[in-house]
Design a protein around this nucleic acid. Structure first.
Lengths: 240, 240
DNA sequence: TTCAAATTTTTTGTCATACCAAAGAGAGTC
DNA sequence: GACTCTCTTTGGTATGACAAAAAATTTGAA
């Protein structure tokens, strides 16, 4: 499935890519190690520098190495953020029509429903404290729409951190990045901020009281409210 | 965030990549269209062919175009599967240590918990029928471990299809692909198959009876059982 | 006229070479 | 020892060349 079905993609650079990918994966090129100089690879593998360059570039695009302009390529320490980073372009294209945005937003709802339920059932005292802090910061920013936007993200971010799974914060960052375009177009004013803040408060309350169903309901209502506003903007520019 | 923060990566190919990425995104290069010949791009943009090639290759690696070895590059119709395809390499590296596998598996649990709850609350008659069919196929394959593996995947796949969000089946495919390595190492025998089939049955029953909490509990137990087996294998080869 | 085979022209993949610019190393000077 | 200046290394780009494959064109036969 992942294998690109290269039945006959006899690109010389591909075998180089595969070679280094192999070595990175099996650990003989650990994170932080540098690849040989291009001219060394040329001699060692008997290919032209063109091929080497293409291979290096491909590895860099795959997110396996980091090729700074005038330095040797360095094997990158993989993070869950880099994983979501390399898909950026494709995602952008998927978000071109409104149904793509809708699908992604639905995914977010699904995800956060789970997060608030999890929080209501398992949040530690420390988690609650962080959540409360984020909520307070959000409440203090109602009059300042820019800061409200930031603290809004911050509040949700805490939810993603509670399960202690490093994949989740990366997903959160990806969501906010990918959807930020539509987010910014959303009308922002203190009255709406007030509504959103109250929704946050209800979610927090439900988590505090250990009521997963209420937390889920509050979250769903909250995100539905947000979606309705994004949706208006979308329909204006894209009728599909 | 997505922008690779190259403050000064004055790579000439980058501006070309950006140019074509722009044109693909704004639709002036629709899916299926072919890029101009390399030499045309050379003349039009006043850069060397080296740069053009690097740009084309980069676009191909990003999954925006499909560059078959000796054919004109074609703008690709993006699917949610291609999005998850380009991350393959990074994910492989993330799964090198057991904690990476654990994190991904936890994500899967989280996801499927949501799916079974959703199914219990919203599954249509048609959905139920498909689920029942998949369950029956699974039950008929208990003696044949290979077929059981396939029908096992098939049963879970139906769960991902119920919400009608095209992102979900893509995620399911990615999960099974990425985790298949560890899955195959799992000991397979009719007795274990029997346990798994009964778990599937319990999940199905709970969905049928519209009991989200029971469905969630059954799923959690099911996946915990699966994880314990994978975990044993992992600990054997990787102590981290 | 129409369809298929053969031929010419493009076009991509690869190679070789050269030059530039910047970073780093080393020598020389104070 | 600190500073400056050169030299080497190394990646980024340009250019030209050639083979092989694809695309376009011509040719040939029915």
């Amino acid at each position: 499935m992942t294998k690109v079905s290269n039945v006959k993609s006899t690109r010389a650079s591909d075998v180089l890519v595969e070679y280094f990918e192999q070595r990175i994966l099996d650990g003989s090129l650990p994170a932080g190690a540098t690849l040989p100089a291009e001219r060394e690879i040329v001699q060692e593998h008997g290919v032209s520098r063109t091929v080497v360059r293409e291979a290096v570039l491909a590895l860099a695009n795959k997110g396996l190495i980091k090729a700074q302009p005038r330095f040797r390529p360095v094997v990158v320490k993989p993070g869950y953020d880099t994983a979501l980073d390399v898909v950026g372009s494709v995602v952008s294209q998927l978000l071109r029509d409104s149904s793509g945005v809708r699908n992604l937003f639905d995914m977010r709802i699904m995800m956060e429903v789970n997060l608030v339920r999890h929080a209501a059932l398992n949040a530690s005292g420390e988690d609650i404290a962080k959540l409360e802090e984020a909520l307070a910061a959000n409440g203090a920013a109602i009059e300042d729409s820019v800061r409200f936007y930031e603290t809004d993200i911050g509040f949700h971010k805490v939810l993603y951190e509670i399960p202690k799974n490093p994949i989740l914060p990366a997903i959160h960052a990806a969501y906010t990045d990918w959807l930020s375009v539509h987010w910014r177009q959303m009308p922002r004013m203190p009255s709406r901020n007030q509504v959103n803040f109250e929704a946050h408060t209800r979610i927090f309350d439900a988590i505090l009281r250990r009521q997963p169903d209420q937390a889920e309901a509050a979250l769903r209502e909250h995100l539905k409210f947000a979606w309705d506003q994004v949706s208006e903007e979308l329909d204006g520019q894209d009728g599909r």
